[in-house]
Design a protein around this nucleic acid. Structure first.
Lengths: 184, 184
DNA sequence: GCTTATAGTTAGATAATCTAATTGTAATCA
DNA sequence: TGATTACAATTAGATTATCTAACTATAAGC
């Protein structure tokens, strides 16, 4: 008797890949006339690329049992650890989430002993947050994979392409951060 | 899902923006020696850019009461609507999610009358999915905003920068899709 | 000393995902 | 041809990440 797989084996009837062309055709029919369609084409590619690199990072981090957003928070704690001002509020402000959401993230990390909370004795409403040695240890284990994954995103590009891209990406990121009013 | 919209008046004690430098310094100390740090720097920027454009798109679509991932599904239905092979399974395959997750998405869209399910009479295990006129109407209302948002991502770049970027982005997206085994 | 503001948490909700189990149908094969 | 296996979809139940609103404790202002 044959026993069974586990892959949830997706059937043969895959939808064909269409590529970008039908999207551009639809854009031609549905974009407002003051939209620059060549730029929008690039924006669409950026959206897809963002999606794909996010998936790739999630995939590579999944074995560590932590998501990129939680790693992000731990990095924040490391990079600001000399300052005393790391509180649930300031974390929420930096990550662009509500205080209640920060509480939930911190609960999760605290339960695993990767961060600690300590009440501010001068203002007992406030709580200081810091990473523990175990947390730092975890991050040190993860970071080599994190950086090599970042490296891998553009590994298929030629060196000259990378040079050009670098300048543009820095400018682009600055522009987006300015317009969103955020920034790391 | 992300919301991140209102303000909830965040207090004064904001964490300072550090910029990329401390990240690069940390990378110097923690990256494996076969990581190309210049490339990883660009990868990090791409990750941040992806995050920022996703936020910008979410923000601009939020007033339509639909997320980008659900719009994505509706676009899929539109672009494949001549073919008969659109089923929960094929949707799950294309979106890279499980069939159960596709069922949940379709339930949500069906409840709002934007899609319809119809049992395949030749093989009663299968269900065909198609967009309704109301669904198509909704998409037509959203798309101008969607395209202009895509356009806006790179609106601060010079024309020459855009020209260079386009070629690189197409190559980059192709490379990522190939490595992830996905594609639109 | 009341009143108001602030920081954090709790309670309860929703969205987007997952795995495992279930249901109904089709195909295989002994 | 009837039992077994495979497959498509759904259901049930869980987790993660977010939200808003309400609550608690503390500090500050008048």
């Amino acid at each position: 008797m044959r026993k069974k797989i586990e892959k949830e084996h997706v059937g043969e009837q895959q939808l064909p890949r269409l590529g970008v062309a039908p999207y551009l055709e639809l854009m031609g029919k549905t974009a407002s006339k003051d939209t620059n369609q060549a730029s929008a084409h690039m924006g669409l590619l950026l959206l897809w690329i963002g999606d794909n690199i996010q998936d790739m990072m999630d995939l590579n981090l999944s074995s560590f049992g932590i998501t990129e957003s939680k790693l992000d928070l731990l990095l924040l704690l490391i990079l600001h650890q000399d300052k005393e001002g790391i509180t649930p509020s300031s974390i929420a402000g930096r990550l662009g989430i509500r205080r209640a959401s920060a509480t939930a993230l911190l609960d999760w990390l605290e339960k695993r002993n990767w961060i600690e909370r300590k009440t501010n004795e001068n203002n007992r409403r406030m709580v200081h947050v810091h990473i523990t040695p175990e947390g730092r240890n975890l991050v040190d284990q993860i970071l080599p994979t994190f950086w090599s994954t970042c490296d891998s995103f553009i590994s298929d590009l030629e060196v000259e392409e990378q040079v050009v891209l670098k300048k543009i990406l820095m400018k682009l990121n600055g522009s987006l951060e300015r317009r969103l009013g955020v920034g790391r």
